[in-house]
């Protein structure tokens, strides 16, 4: 009994993944195409901004401003890209992402605002700024050269997958293999010890939020290229979905644990779940409620795991 419970708690993610997969494929006519669609097209977007959230969660915070950073940076860049200045546009987009992330980081480290409140507040401010900038308009009909970033494929696999996995590889390397990555984990696990060991914890946190901002604007850019449209409402659900994916993936809110690898599984669970609801003809209006439930459930699972671990040790 003890063993089964332990197994279930350790591998619940994989079990969940397969359960959802089986349910969703059993009701679709073309399960292979369906799964391919999810992995090729839907998952990469979610993955990229969820990585941003995961990094923030590892430092012991979180980033709820992902969606509005994506909207603001892409809308600003869209003005350039529509004039065919694609590279300048992309550079501006990523720079704005980094800049807004920097603001988040400064609010959290220097002004000592709780990360939740800081990024939630920034979300509102940035979203307001996007509304002002766009004034209700949209920018669309981009050139083919730009759209191909998201639409194109290589060897039959969507560019999105390559981009997402390139980012994953880089992040895995940086956060598992470098001194900086180690400092991010130690800062998340215990900021006081890390500071007393000579780690510049403020800098670590600021850089992580900047990376998170860049990842948000990257995924925003891909969305714009895919939808061929930049609008102020982009990414309304990013924060919520990314948090759900990160937590169900097993990165702990306490910080210092988990990683982007876990989040890949978390994202797959979320994407499959959404798809499953789609297939079952559940209204998309349920989305918010489902995200919320996933967050609660994963927090509860995390707690159960913790208790079980303590129980095993004694």
């Amino acid at each position: 009994m003890k063993r089964i419970a332990g197994f279930a708690l350790n591998y619940y993610k994989v079990i969940l993944l397969f359960a959802i997969l089986i349910v969703s494929s059993s009701v679709t006519q073309d399960p292979v195409q369906n799964i391919k669609n999810m992995i090729m097209i839907q998952a990469p977007f979610v993955m990229i901004y969820s990585f941003g959230m995961t990094l923030a969660v590892i430092t012991g915070g979180l980033d709820l401003s992902l969606g509005s950073i994506a909207a603001f940076s892409t809308c600003a860049a869209a003005f350039l890209i529509i004039e065919d200045q694609i590279f300048v546009g992309i550079a501006v987009c990523l720079l704005i992402g980094a800049g807004l992330g920097l603001l988040n980081g400064l609010l959290i480290t220097k002004a000592k605002v709780n990360p939740f409140i800081a990024t939630y507040g920034m979300d509102w401010v940035i979203r307001g700024a996007v509304y002002i900038m766009m004034g209700g308009a949209m920018i669309y009909h981009f050139s083919h050269d730009f759209k191909v970033i998201a639409d194109g494929s290589f060897l039959g696999i969507s560019n999105l997958v390559y981009i997402a996995f390139a980012i994953l590889a880089i992040l895995m390397f940086v956060f598992q293999k470098t001194v900086f990555g180690r400092n991010v984990y130690s800062t998340g696990a215990n900021i006081k010890v890390s500071r007393l060991t000579g780690v510049n914890t403020d800098m670590v946190i600021i850089i992580v939020y900047m990376i998170s901002g860049v990842l948000a604007s990257t995924s925003g850019l891909l969305y714009v290229a895919r939808l061929d449209c930049a609008e102020a409402f982009l990414g309304k659900n990013f924060g919520l979905q990314a948090l759900a994916a990160t937590l169900i993936g097993g990165t702990s809110l306490k910080g210092g644990k988990g990683g982007v690898g876990n989040t890949v599984i978390g994202v797959l669970i979320m994407v499959f779940l959404m798809n499953c609801l789609n297939v079952l003809k559940v209204s998309t209006l349920w989305q918010d409620a489902v995200f919320g439930l996933v967050i609660v459930v994963s927090a509860l699972l995390e707690m159960a795991k913790q208790r079980y671990a303590n129980y095993l040790q004694l």
């Binding site: 919520l240 209204s283 209006l285 919320g292 439930l293 609660v296």
Partner: peptide, 23 residues
């Protein structure tokens, strides 16, 4: 009772309530 992080727990119920209202 369950001692979940209050930010995240109420953030989750926020989207649950919102979702239920929408539905």
């Amino acid at each position: 009772v369950l001692n979940l992080n209050h930010f995240v727990a109420t953030f989750a119920t926020m989207s649950i309530a919102k979702g239920l209202a929408l539905v």
